[in-house]
């Protein structure tokens, strides 16, 4: 049998039909943003929402899931349309695609998870201007195939989510002594050892300082990321 006929003539793999679905390169797209190229600590994208909603673990997880959904879908849509979008109006096209997806998430949360949606208030809406979505569309989806863009979207959204969840974990644990709303520090520690929750962790400045410390730890582990000045 002719070797060429065995290739999958698939819509997703235009130009690279012989590349396996999870080749080494594709896996790198997924894992790179988790640490070496993390959107928050290295690319400095999407900071605003990362800081504001990390008082508790639950909204942070909901936010992560919303961002994963929005990024995966918008990356795929823009990547499908990438040859049709005129360069001059691409920002508006991005905004339209992203804001329709975000409106979808917003309405969904209002219908099925009203408490969380109240807590997140305007920050779901602010995914529209979350530079992480826009930045990846501009930097990646506009020049790459559908499957790769999908992986890049998922990878970056998870990289963003990891930082969100780490910050939320520490802030909720030290600030309120709870995780996911359930008390984890037992009562006797409060009563017998005089332990007091550090309410300061719940206030906004500590989110900034926690992220600063995470950056410090990450960069002292991975020296290539250190900035000149």
């Amino acid at each position: 049998m002719d070797n060429k006929n065995t290739k999958k003539p698939s819509f997703l793999f235009i130009g690279r039909s012989d590349e396996p679905i999870l080749s080494k390169k594709n896996r790198k797209l997924l894992t790179d943003p988790l640490d070496d190229n993390n959107p928050i600590t290295v690319q400095v994208l999407g900071i605003c929402s990362a800081l504001a909603i990390t008082v508790q673990l639950k909204p942070a997880v909901v936010m992560t899931m919303s961002v994963i959904f929005v990024m995966a879908c918008s990356n795929v849509i823009i990547s499908v349309l990438r040859n049709l979008i005129p360069n001059r109006i691409r920002i508006i096209v991005f905004l339209v695609v992203i804001s329709s997806l975000v409106a979808l998430v917003d309405q969904f949360l209002k219908a099925y998870a009203y408490d969380v949606s109240k807590e997140l208030s305007i920050f779901i809406g602010l995914i529209v201007t979350n530079c992480i979505v826009m930045g990846r569309l501009e930097a990646f989806a506009l020049g790459n195939g559908v499957w790769k863009s999908f992986l890049d979207g998922i990878g970056n959204a998870i990289g963003y989510g990891i930082i969100l969840i780490i910050v939320a974990f520490f802030r909720e644990l030290f600030g309120a002594g709870t995780l996911w709303g359930i008390q984890v520090i037992p009562d006797f520690i409060y009563e017998e050892y005089g332990y007091v929750n550090n309410g300061f962790m719940l206030l906004s400045p500590m989110a900034l300082i926690t992220v600063g410390l995470i950056i410090w730890i990450q960069r002292s582990r991975n020296r290539t990321l250190i900035e000149e000045n």
Binding site: P205, A207, V211, G212, L213, W216, R223
Partner: peptide, 23 residues
């Protein structure tokens, strides 16, 4: 400044301190 903290890290911490001031 300690090398790993240069740039982004120290900016975050300063912003945190400024936020305490504004509180």
């Amino acid at each position: 400044i300690p090398a790993p903290l240069r740039g982004l890290g120290i900016t975050f911490i300063i912003t945190g301190l400024m936020a305490i001031g504004f509180m």
